[in-house]
Write a protein that binds this DNA or RNA. Structure first.
Lengths: 343, 343
DNA sequence: TGGTTCAATGATCTCGTGACCATTGGCGTA
DNA sequence: TACGCCAATGGTCACGAGATCATTGAACCA
């Protein structure tokens, strides 16, 4: 296979073959009822014969925007996001939109180039899990000023002006802390501490608040600002368990973190939940396979993805994105949490 | 946020602000050396002031094709594919292309609609993990006739005319069978049997051949045509282990299958590897966390993705896709395989 | 000094579709 | 019968960038 001889048929070719004007041929696609049955049949036959497919780019050129929507994920290899993308794509496809999936790797700086690419395609809307940092804020605002619809999901940056679809992270974290507190834990650590610019996550912000609500405090030596990666969770777990007074319960903020935490605990030959309890966000299949199976907070991924996509569609069809929505997390008790070892 | 007042700046606006003709303004982007330094500076200042971004769709209109490449995955929630997408996107982005990621859920029928969508965007090329079945073959051929570059990866349909990038599945399967044979296993089952249209996979085809090469045969009751999903693997494992003479070793054909198989074995309270050995394709993080950790065949995902993307780029820059490539799998011995229990 | 050359800049056409306006002709009604 | 209406169809332009050809003017050389 060397090179190509593109000869793509256009609506003009269809019209010529059918013996009608291009305008009439186009109507066969969008306003079929305005044509005589015979004319319609002739045009459809021509479309079939030439295997004509409209060029989506040309149409959008006129109106300025396309039938294309951008999706900016935190990380495409995080199953939560992959599943989100699947459901969002299905919903948008049904409504006639094409989804362009990208990732920002949790960084606003990295995100700018993706936004630029999406804007180059003149996407009509963007579903975004914004990255950390201020670098992309101005660019995003400019896109909105140019008519691009924006909806945030999974995370909303502080003072964000955009509608969002999220987990009720505060309530989920509260239920997690309440659960381990009920089991008797007093020294609890989350695998990540709130930081206004590096890690401005709701989950890490809600953790000390939930602790306080149970009359507990998070010791300073448990507090470390991290990212949502396996690696940082692995190192942080090792560090925490090396402390003179290590936590008796760990809360991972995302499924990928749980992998790192679990690996570190295994390396230290700590028994779960005998020596330390473990709880994580995201109900991934493997969490039920390890021994003991891990207690998790499940997110309604599909419902969240569909809600986000529907907001986009509503806004594009002339309405608005509407109010922000939160979904409840669900604590699924398995075997990785138990009473703490007496000191 | 209600509705929009799109006023997007074009190269015309830039030209007007800079006091030059549109043609000159355009040259500031692609042939900057043809402009006087002063003119260039004026145009660049105007671009900066208006935050001008070229519309990628308009340019492609002229030449017929775009700077866009389609990627058709088997399943976006399979980590192998997600990682493949990440690496492919990075490689293509560096070369100035935008990647549109889609999935066919292993079905050629489902695939046709994705191909149609991609062709609607007039993608210049497609990287595809073709689905099972004949439904999309004709459509794909038509796209090629219209100048779209096609490269297959991970799987190639029988008699496929396209260049492909794949794992050396036959060799990988041979090494897997050799390994369990060396441990003493004689009753071995793969979680899926070759079928020319339902499951025309190299791995399932290579399995009985590898068995024969070791003087073994696959009993008919072990042979079941399945899909690469967790669910089917789960059911098939239950069925196999219920047989009067169950296999002493199981080989899962993909990481997702391993989840289902592992779950079924746990439910039956079978000890790994004491009662049954397990081996799977795809070195996913969780496979090292379960007890015992699972022996896997690792695929060089990133190298494969990059190779596929580079073939696309080569073909688009005027060359050809070149020869098909295969990559070797790597057997990583962990604890899930051991000698079989004596009968 | 007239002609040549070339760097710098500009004008115009093209791509494929959607939006909008124009034309045709048949039929009903006063 | 003349007028108006409307269904059916056609003509034309805009969208935004790339490609190609055209123009300007200054420098250079014989």
């Amino acid at each position: 296979m060397t090179h190509r001889m593109a000869r793509v048929s256009t609506i003009q070719d269809v019209a010529r073959l059918a013996g009608v004007s291009p305008t009439t041929a186009k109507r066969a696609l969008r306003e079929a009822d305005k044509l005589t049955p015979e004319t319609l049949a002739r045009v459809q036959a021509a479309i079939e014969a030439l295997h004509y497919e409209p060029d989506q780019r040309a149409g959008g050129l006129r109106g300025g925007q396309s039938q294309t929507v951008g999706l900016v994920l935190g990380s495409i290899v995080e199953p939560f996001f992959a599943q989100f993308a699947r459901t969002a794509a299905r919903t948008l496809n049904r409504a006639g939109y094409t989804l362009i999936i990208t990732e920002n790797e949790y960084s606003a700086a990295r995100e700018v180039e993706e936004l630029r690419r999406l804007y180059g395609q003149r996407v009509a809307a963007i579903m975004i899990r914004a990255g950390y940092g201020p670098e992309s804020r101005e660019y995003l605002a400019r896109m909105v000023a140019r008519g691009v619809v924006v909806v945030e999901f999974d995370y909303t940056s502080p003072n964000s002006p955009y509608t969002h679809v999220m987990l009720n992270n505060a309530a989920a974290m509260y239920s997690a802390v309440a659960y381990v507190h009920r089991l008797g834990h007093r020294r609890v650590a989350a695998l990540g501490t709130y930081h206004p610019s590096i890690h401005p996550e709701e989950r890490s912000r809600a953790f000390p608040e939930a602790m306080n609500a149970h009359g507990l405090t998070v010791p300073p030596e448990y507090q470390r600002v991290t990212l949502l990666t396996e690696d940082t969770a692995y190192r942080l777990t090792h560090d925490l368990m090396s402390l003179p007074a290590p936590p008796t319960a760990l809360i991972a903020l995302a499924g990928t973190q749980a992998v790192g935490a679990y690996r570190a605990l295994r390396e230290r030959e700590l028994h779960i939940p005998g020596d330390v309890s473990l709880l994580t966000f995201d109900n991934y299949p493997w969490t039920a396979l390890v021994e003991p199976p891990i207690t998790v907070i499940e997110q309604p991924v599909e419902a969240m993805a569909e809600a986000t996509a529907l907001k986009i569609i509503a806004a594009l069809e002339g309405g608005s994105t509407g109010e922000s929505i939160t979904f409840p997390g669900k604590l699924i008790e398995r075997g990785s949490c138990g009473p703490p070892k007496p000191d």
